[in-house]
Structures are given as C-alpha cells and as structure tokens.
Design a protein around this nucleic acid. Structure first.
Lengths: 224, 224
DNA sequence: AGAACGCTTCGATGGAGAACGAACAATGCG
DNA sequence: CGCATTGTTCGTTCTCCATCGAAGCGTTCT
C-alpha cells in the first residue's frame, strides 16, 4: 500500500481492448479522427468517443480540432515508448511463439513507430550512421557528429534549424531489442523515404514495404 | 481491428490497483509471499491469491515454492522495464508536478530496480565506468572493457564466471531518463553496497539511503 | 435556409470481475 | 498426533464500466 505515480490508472487505460486498438493504430504516427478510430477499434462511434475522452483526460492523447474534424494523436514519444515496451512483453509472454505470418515478417523488417522508422532496417541504419561517425552514441543519448550537417544536407535534410523537439533520440525496438533513431531527424528520414517513394505504407498496418529499387537507393544512402 | 500481440491483456493485468501495487512492491527485486503481497496491496488474502494467479497465468510473475511458503517474483527484466516505462508516463502525465516529498527525493537519488541500483547515483556510476573504459557502451548493449576483470576483482566481484543471464545490461531510469547498469554485474554491485552497509533499504520502499561514510566509500570506488 | 456530415452527450442495459467470508488443503511445530 | 500457519478454492454480492440507440450540437456544402 505504497504511494507514487498512479501506474494502475495509466495501465488501466491501455488495458481495454478497444482503447488498445486505438493506441496501436495511432502508433502509425498520423493523427486520426474519431470515426476512423472507431473503425479501427471495432466499436460504435459513441463508444469510441467515450474511450477517446478517457484517453485524452488521462493524458495519453492530444487533440487538434480542425473544422468539424477532430484529430486524435499520441501525446508524445514517451507514450509511444511505453506502448512499445508493453508490446514487447505481450510478444514474449504471449501465444507460445506462433509462427510469424507474412505481414508479421514485413513488420519486423520495417515499420512505422510513431513518426519514424523501426525494425531491422532502422536498427541497421542507426548502427551504420554511428559507425561512420555521422552520429555519436553516448549513453541513450544520440548526438550529431561533425559530418552530420553535410551528410544530411546532401540528401536534403537540414539538421541545424533547431526545433522544439530533440533532433536525435534513441527508441527501443521491440522486435530487434536494440535502439533505432527517433527524434526530428528520424522523422525527417521517414519522410524522405516515403517522399522519394522508396517504400510505401502497407494499408491498415504499420508495416513499411520497400520496392526493389527503393531498397537499393536506401542502402546506397544509409547503409553504404 | 488489427491483430498482433495482445497488449490489452498485459496492460489490463497491470491496470488493477491491487495488482499494480503488488508489481510495484516486487520491483524491489526480492520475491515476496502471498501474505506479504496482500498487505502491500491492501487487500485480503483470498483476493490477493486470486490476483497472483492471474499475474502468474499472464506470464508476468514467477513462482518458487518453498515448504508452505510460495514466493512470487517478477518474471524478468523485460517485465521490470515495462513497469518502469509505465511509471515514467504516469509520472509525467500524472498530478501536475506535485512537489516531491522527502521520500520521493530519496527515491530519485538511489533506489532498487528489480535487482540492481537505479536513480541519480546509479546513472552517475555507469557514466563513470564507461568514461574509465571499465565498461564499453555499444548501443543499448554494454560490454566489459579490458580492465573490467581486475577492476571488479579488486572489490571482490568476479565478472568472468559466466552465468545464464547477461553480465551487463542497460536499464532505462524513469527519474533520470538515462540508462543505468543492470545484469548480474548490476546485481552484484547492489549486493556489495548492502553487504558493506554503505547503504540500507528504506523500510517499505524501494529507496536506498547511503550513510555519510558509505557514500564516501561508494564514491571512492565507483565515482573516482 | 436546409440538408448532410462528424462527433459528443444522455440514458438504459448487461456483463465482467473485484471483493470477502467460509471452507478446504498443505506444511511445520510441539 | 493435535494445532497453528500459510494459501487456495468456492460461492456470493456488488460495483463499475463498456456498449449502443437516440437525441443534440456545431460545421460545411449547396
């Protein structure tokens, strides 16, 4: 019977199937409307609305009203990290290692995590960037290396116009159990990948699938 | 309405106040009996027993029977990490930055995290060990440096008799938002600290309080 | 203005599960 | 062998909350 942060309150919010589905959908990074989330969760609109106000009240979501639309999004990277942590546990203690389906495989290779790329390919990318001293890993913190400016400028990403959020962050990957790159730089790289059409987002999934030439281009830029 | 690891199931288990209190108590690292946990959670013994079997079934706990005692413990570091992640979110979205009480302050300085030391002091220790190249940080992985054997042998810790669990692991600290040292080495160091009576565990809390000479001794060994 | 849309609020219903007392099982002690 | 200690199982009660239909409110389109 001890005091402290109310962890039951937070976990309880995630602990309802409908809400968990919504949060999962929002892990894709794009904010969604109430009706889209209702569809995702498989519940009626009033029910979804009720859940959303609870999540909002609980501080796990943010709301942006635009005209008659109301866009709900994850409250921040920390919330996303928590979801990944829970997913990791569910993955290991869950159904005794069910054989991974094809989509599951694609998810392991590359997927969206909030606003940046995750999975095998993302972990490899960060490793390589650190090897090349473009980025410097210093504990969980990741900093820009000396050559970062020119390296990213070459592919049209400006890393020196400081935004509010940190440029680099490490985010733990639940399938690889290692870190991948988050922060505004991680987000910018994902943008680049989608913008150049090196890969596209799988419909109704967090999976990101690379086209063969897209994969080559990606490897040339980030893994060479 | 997508598939994937059943995160609602796991979060739901943590989402009950009684169960959350139990898990919190077990974050102290020592396995506890059903009656101790009932006391912690503030529920009757039958109720506690019911919760414990749910947590066990859910894979979050392990059970060790010894005579008429049944010791429940956290299922592993991954579960502990998840709890820390949830705690972190609860901490930031929770009661608008309530002024930290004295015990809360002690918790931030040093506390037990599963089986090793966490908090400000633990983070500083890891930083220093990496600076001195006793340990080498390589992504989230931490490895032994060349001088690790002699360095730890000098204080009576053998790092080369390989156990099942990894010797070094990084664990994210919810109060510092940086990593501290886990793994068997982290556990051995905490043992050392308590064994030498440099510090003692606060009653009914995860807080670890150093005596003035204990603090000096600790700093001499780990922060010099 | 009127109609269509997007979403929230209200009220009623049903079901899940948290709680405890009492009984039952297992272990250890004198 | 009794008897205390430790836990689990059973049955019951009760509260909470997820759910949906219907109605209400603000926005946009024509």
């Amino acid at each position: 019977m001890r005091e402290g942060p109310d962890i039951a309150r937070i976990a309880g919010l995630v602990g309802d199937p409908a809400r968990a589905n919504m949060l999962n959908a929002l892990m894709g990074g794009t904010a969604l409307t109430a009706s889209e989330l209702a569809l995702e969760a498989g519940v009626s609109l009033p029910t979804a609305s009720s859940h959303l106000s609870k999540l909002l009240e609980g501080g796990l979501l943010t709301l942006a009203s635009q005209g008659r639309h109301r866009y709900y999004g994850l409250a921040g990277p920390q919330v996303a990290g928590m979801i990944e942590a829970i997913t990791g546990v569910a993955e290991t203690v869950g159904p005794r290692r069910v054989r991974p389906g094809p989509r599951d495989g694609a998810m392991r290779v590359a997927r969206v995590c909030y606003d940046h790329l995750a999975g095998e390919r993302a972990v490899a990318m960060l490793d390589r960037l650190v090897d090349k001293n473009v980025l410097v890993r210093d504990d969980k913190e990741i900093r820009l290396g000396a050559s970062a400016g020119s390296h990213f400028a070459a592919i049209g990403i400006d890393v020196y116009t400081k935004p509010r959020r940190p440029v680099c962050r490490a985010c733990l990957d639940w399938s690889e159990r290692r870190s991948h790159l988050a922060g505004t730089l991680g987000a910018a790289i994902l943008d680049k990948i989608l913008m150049e059409k090196w890969a596209r987002r799988e419909k109704d999934s967090r999976a990101v699938v690379f086209s063969p030439p897209g994969k080559q281009a990606f490897e040339k830029v980030f893994l060479s």
